[in-house]
Deep mutational scan, measured.
Amino acid sequence: SLNIVTVTLNMERHHFLGISIVGQSNDRGDGGIYIGSIMKGGAVAADGRIEPGDMLLQVNDVNFENMSNDDAVRVLREIVSQTGPISLTVAKC
């Protein structure tokens, strides 16, 4: 069973999320979106629970499971540009 973790980040303390995301597209185009790298000083690094290779399932109320990489990057950028905490739900691989 997948270990699902939801992390809520206070964006007032850390001014950027600090992750890159990578799409693992397979033949069907539904390989999922994964955490690529984590930048020091960002909210994700400070929290420490999300790691490279984790699968990104949801951000706030947006489901990322069947999203293309381009869409995921765009949607994540829109969410980060808003104010307030950000909740990331990942599956630990």
Rank of each mutant, 00 (worst) to 15 (best):
S1D: 11
L2D: 09
L2R: 04
L2C: 11
N3T: 03
N3I: 03
I4G: 03
I4L: 07
I4D: 02
I4A: 03
V5T: 10
V5L: 05
T6Q: 13
T6P: 05
T6V: 10
V7G: 00
V7I: 14
V7M: 08
T8Y: 10
T8F: 06
T8Q: 06
L9R: 00
L9S: 01
L9W: 02
L9D: 02
E12L: 08
E12R: 07
E12G: 08
H15P: 03
L17V: 05
L17A: 04
L17Q: 01
L17H: 01
L17D: 02
G18T: 01
G18L: 00
G18D: 02
G18P: 01
G18S: 00
V22R: 13
V22C: 12
G23S: 13
G23V: 02
S25Y: 15
S25P: 04
D27N: 11
G29A: 10
D30I: 06
D30L: 08
D30W: 06
G31W: 14
G31I: 05
G31P: 15
G32Y: 04
G32L: 08
Y34H: 03
M39R: 15
G42C: 08
D47E: 03
I50T: 08
I50V: 06
G53V: 04
D54P: 00
D54A: 02
M55W: 06
L56R: 02
L57H: 06
Q58Y: 14
Q58A: 12
V59K: 00
N60I: 01
N60F: 00
D61H: 11
V62T: 11
N63C: 05
N63P: 08
F64A: 02
E65G: 04
E65S: 10
N66Y: 11
M67A: 11
S68R: 06
S68L: 09
S68N: 13
N69S: 09
N69R: 12
N69D: 14
N69I: 09
D70I: 03
D70M: 03
D70G: 08
D70H: 08
D70W: 05
A72Y: 01
A72H: 02
V73H: 14
V73Y: 10
R74E: 08
R74V: 12
R74Q: 14
R74P: 10
V75S: 14
L76S: 11
L76I: 07
L76H: 00
R77F: 03
R77Q: 12
E78V: 05
E78L: 08
V80N: 14
S81I: 07
Q82V: 15
Q82W: 03
Q82E: 14
T83D: 15
G84H: 06
P85W: 02
P85T: 14
P85S: 13
P85H: 13
I86N: 07
S87Q: 08
L88E: 15
T89A: 13
T89C: 15
V90A: 02
A91T: 06
K92Q: 07
C93H: 14
C93Y: 15
C93N: 11
C93K: 15
